[in-house]
Every structure is written in C-alpha cells, then in structure tokens.
C-alpha cells in the first residue's frame, strides 16, 4: 500500500515535471496575451499614452458599423476559399503525380516545388511585386509578346477585387509544404492495395478515388484546416508587403486592418477588438470545418 502510494506519487511528479512547465509557458505566452487583448479591446486607448478610457463594448459596436471591417472579413474568407481550392488541388495533383506515376526526376521536381516554402514570405512579396509591376514587371512583358501594343495593366491597382491578385503568390508559396505532407501520406499507403486494384483492372483515377483519397483524408483535412487558420491569422504579411491594404482598402484583410488601426491610426483598443474578432472567427471556422470535413475514418491494415 505504502509502496504503491510512493510509486503513484513519483509517477505524478514525473508527469507534472513535463506538463507544468509547458502549461506555464502556454499561460504566459498564449493565455495571458489573449486575455490582455480582450481587456484592451474594452478601452479607448491610443496605445501611446498612460491615458485609457473604459468604454465597454463600444469598440465592437463601432467595428460592426465599420464597412472596412466587413470588407476585410470578406477578403479574408475569399483568400481562405481561394487558397484551399488552389493549394489542395495543385498539391494533391503534384503529390499523386510524383508518387503514383513513378517517373524519373520525381525527386528533382519535389525539391523544385518545395523551394517557395524555403523562401521567406518577405522575398515572396517583393518578388511578386516585381512580377506585377506595370512598367518593368514580368507579367506585362510576357503578355506584351502576344499583343501589338505593350500591355500596361496595373495588376495591383484595380478599382475593386484587387484581392484576387494576392491569390497566386499565396498559392504559389503554399503548395510545396502541403505537397510534401500528402506525399508522405500517400507513401504510407501499402503498395499491395494498388497492386490488387491493378489486377482487378482499376485505372489510375479509380485507384485515386477509392484508395488514395480515403486513406489520406486525415492528412487532407489537417491541411485544409491548417491553410484556413494560417490564412486568417497570417495573410497580413503578404498583404502588407504588397499593397498595405490598398488601393482604397480593396485588399484589406483583418490582420492588416488591425495593424493599420492600432499602429497607424492610434486606436489600440479598436485594434485589439479586431484581434478578438480574428480569434473568434478562427475558432468558429475551425469547428465548422471539422464538422464539415468529418468522414468515417478508414484504417489501413
């Protein structure tokens, strides 16, 4: 009795020695900032002075009335939808092509497609700014090969829907990682399944639909949800690098608007409120996606 009690205590101590520090870090670096942001979102504060006014939920009321917030929200979900569609389609295609079709050089292409992931987002932004540059940009120069008059489209300066132009760089920069993720998943599928299917006369498409897709669905789900979350929380970077939300807020996303309000227009409280909005929308969307993407788990054995 006594000895087992000691053993139990030691076991608990052992567990605690791993969990408590982690919990402490989690509280200090995640929970505390979130609570602090919630707290600041209730104040009218410039973020620069010792002067703060408690205004309750006024920031949130203002937020609902601010058309730019809605535009930013729309742009965010546009990016989420566009990136999920673009990245998943292309990443899956490349992953299947590089594993199931077994042609030579597949290792080479795998590296090539992964390169954009190694490049810092800052470089991606600058690079695509050059591609889109109306005067010296690659895109206009390329299109001009096929026209009499030189093409002079301002790719990042449309009166509306400029957000579309941020999709290609985001997708381009994202494919590699998810491709690798899916390649790993596909390689885990036992070859015997494909061999059996082959003997039964199933073609590549059938094999994909009935073997690959069900067996890598878990990884796909993770990928989709990960794309969604990183987009809602992180699209700020590419937006800020390329357009700063302009022209006329057509490319504003929640993250960039948060920065704009908190640090450029000195409404730190309002910025914090946008932060809360990002948190809430991310949570809701994640839960919704989990539900939506839920399928019977298929075990491979």
């Amino acid at each position: 009795m006594n000895t087992s009690g000691t053993a139990k205590w030691q076991r608990n101590l052992f567990i605690a020695s791993f969990t408590l520090p982690t919990l402490a870090f989690f509280c200090v670096f995640t929970i505390y900032p979130v609570i602090k942001a919630l707290y600041y979102s209730l104040f009218d504060w410039s973020g620069m002075s010792d002067h703060m006014d408690f205004i309750g939920l006024q920031n949130f009321k203002d937020m609902l009335r601010d058309p730019i917030v809605w535009q930013a929200l729309g742009n965010d979900y546009f990016l989420v939808a566009g990136k999920i569609a673009g990245i998943m389609l292309l990443a899956t295609f490349f992953a299947v092509a590089l594993t199931r079709f077994g042609f030579r050089l597949s290792g080479f292409f795998r590296s090539i497609y992964f390169i954009p992931n190694v490049i810092s987002v800052v470089v991606v932004g600058v690079l695509w700014n050059f591609i889109y540059n109306p005067q010296i940009g690659f895109l206009n120069a390329f299109l001009s090969l096929f026209t009499k008059e030189p093409v002079a489209i301002t790719w990042l300066g449309f009166t509306s829907h400029t957000i579309w132009m941020l999709l290609p760089p985001s997708i381009w920069a994202g494919i590699g990682f998810y491709m690798i993720l899916l390649i790993a998943a596909i390689q885990n599928v036992p070859d015997s399944l494909y061999e059996a299917a082959e003997l039964e006369g199933a073609n590549q498409w059938h094999q994909y639909c009935h073997i690959t897709l069900p067996l890598v669905w878990e990884q796909m789900k993770v990928s989709i949800i990960n794309i969604m979350m990183t987009t809602l929380n992180g699209s700020f970077v590419i937006v800020w690098l390329m357009t700063e939300g302009g022209p006329d807020n057509t490319t504003q996303v929640m993250g960039s608007y948060l920065y704009q309000m908190a640090f450029r227009q000195y409404h730190f409280g309002f910025g914090a409120a946008i932060g809360v909005l990002i948190l809430v929308t991310s949570l809701i969307t994640t839960v919704a996606m989990q539900r939506l993407l839920h399928r019977e788990t298929i075990e491979m054995s």
Binding site: N133, P134, Q135, A152, T154, L156, G157, T243, P247
Partner: peptide, 15 residues
Amino acid sequence: DKASIQINHTDSQMS
C-alpha cells in the same frame, strides 16, 4: 501614369 496607383516611392522615382 497608370502605373502610379500600385507603386511605392522608389519605383515612381526610378521611373
């Protein structure tokens, strides 16, 4: 210049 709308100061100055 139609390019103006999307460029930053360095680009416009180079132009």
